[in-house]
Measured scan of single mutants.
Amino acid sequence: WIARINAAVRAYGLNYSTFINGLKKAGIELDRKILADMAVRDPQAFEQVVNKVKEALQV
Rank of each mutant, 00 (worst) to 15 (best):
L14Y: 05
W1P: 09
I28Q: 05
V49K: 02
Q58I: 14
Q58G: 10
D31K: 09
L23I: 11
F19G: 00
E47T: 05
A3T: 06
V50K: 01
A11Y: 06
A7R: 09
A56N: 07
F46L: 03
K52Q: 11
V53R: 00
E29V: 13
F19D: 00
Y12M: 05
R10A: 15
N21F: 13
K33V: 09
N15K: 08
A7P: 01
N15S: 13
A56T: 10
I20Q: 07
K25H: 12
G22S: 04
R32E: 15
N15V: 12
R10M: 13
L57Y: 08
V9P: 00
Q48C: 05
I34S: 09
Q44H: 12
V50R: 01
L14E: 01
K54M: 11
M38C: 05
E47K: 06
V9W: 01
Y12K: 04
Q48P: 01
A26L: 09
G27H: 14
V9G: 01
N21P: 05
R4M: 15
V53P: 00
D31I: 03
R10L: 10
N21T: 10
M38Q: 07
Q44E: 09
P43I: 08
N6T: 15
N15L: 06
N51R: 07
M38A: 02
N21H: 12
L23H: 01
E55K: 10
F19A: 01
N15W: 05
V9Y: 01
K52F: 08
A7N: 12
L30D: 10
A8G: 02
E47D: 07
G22V: 02
A11S: 08
L14M: 13
G22W: 03
Q48G: 14
I2Q: 07
I20E: 09
I34G: 09
A11C: 03
A36P: 05
T18Y: 04
D37R: 07
Q44F: 12
R32N: 15
A3G: 10
R41Y: 15
K24Q: 14
E47S: 07
V50C: 03
P43M: 06
V49C: 07
A56V: 15
I2N: 03
A11N: 11
L23V: 11
L23R: 00
T18W: 04
F46N: 00
F46Q: 00
A45H: 08
V59W: 06
E55L: 10
I28N: 04
R41F: 13
V9A: 09
K52C: 05
V50E: 01
Q44A: 10
G22Q: 03
Q44S: 09
Q48V: 12
Q44P: 12
V53H: 00
M38T: 06
R32K: 15
I20A: 11
K25P: 09
A8W: 04
A39H: 05
L30Q: 12
A7E: 15
Y12W: 06
R41P: 01
P43T: 05
I2E: 12
I5D: 00
A56Y: 10
I2A: 03
Q48D: 12
K52W: 08
K54R: 10
Q44I: 13
K25A: 14
K52T: 08
V40Q: 09
T18H: 06
R41T: 15
G27I: 04
R4E: 15
F46Y: 01
L23F: 05
A56S: 10
R41E: 15
K54W: 06
Y12T: 02
A39K: 02
N51M: 12
R41S: 13
Y16F: 07
L35C: 02
W1L: 13
E29W: 11
A26S: 11
I2G: 02
N51L: 14
I28E: 05
P43W: 06
A11W: 04
Q58M: 08
V49W: 02
I20T: 10
V50Q: 01
G27D: 10
S17C: 09
Q48A: 09
N6Y: 02
A45W: 14
L30F: 12
S17R: 15
Y12P: 00
E29I: 10
N21S: 11
N21E: 15
A39V: 09
V49Y: 10
A7H: 11
K25Y: 06
K52V: 09
D42H: 08
I28H: 05
R10N: 11
K25R: 10
D31C: 04
G22N: 04
R4K: 14
L57D: 05
E29T: 14
M38K: 04
L57P: 03
A26K: 03
V53N: 00
Y16M: 02
M38S: 02
I28C: 04
Y12Q: 05
F19S: 00
V9I: 12
F46W: 10
Q58C: 03
L57W: 06
F46T: 00
L35A: 05
R32S: 12
F46P: 00
A36E: 03
L30K: 07
G13Y: 02
N15T: 13
A3D: 11
D42S: 10
R4Q: 15
Q58P: 12
I34H: 12
P43V: 06
V40I: 10
N51W: 11
N6W: 05
A26E: 04
L35I: 11
A11F: 06
A11E: 10
K52D: 11
Q58Y: 09
L30T: 15
N51Y: 15
P43K: 04
K25G: 10
L30R: 09
A7S: 07
K52I: 08
L30N: 07
Q48Y: 08
D42V: 05
A8I: 04
D42Y: 07
L23K: 01
N6M: 08
A56I: 09
D37K: 08
E29H: 13
E47H: 06
Q44V: 11
M38F: 06
N6K: 14
V40H: 15
A11G: 09
D31R: 08
W1G: 09
I2C: 03
N51E: 10
Y12L: 06
K33H: 13
Y12C: 02
K33T: 11
F19Q: 00
N15Y: 06
K54C: 02
R4S: 14
V9C: 03
I2W: 08
K52M: 06
G22P: 00
D37P: 03
Q58A: 11
S17P: 12
E55F: 07
A11H: 10
A8P: 00
A8T: 03
K25C: 04
A45P: 01
V49Q: 03
F46R: 00
L30P: 08
K25S: 10
K54G: 03
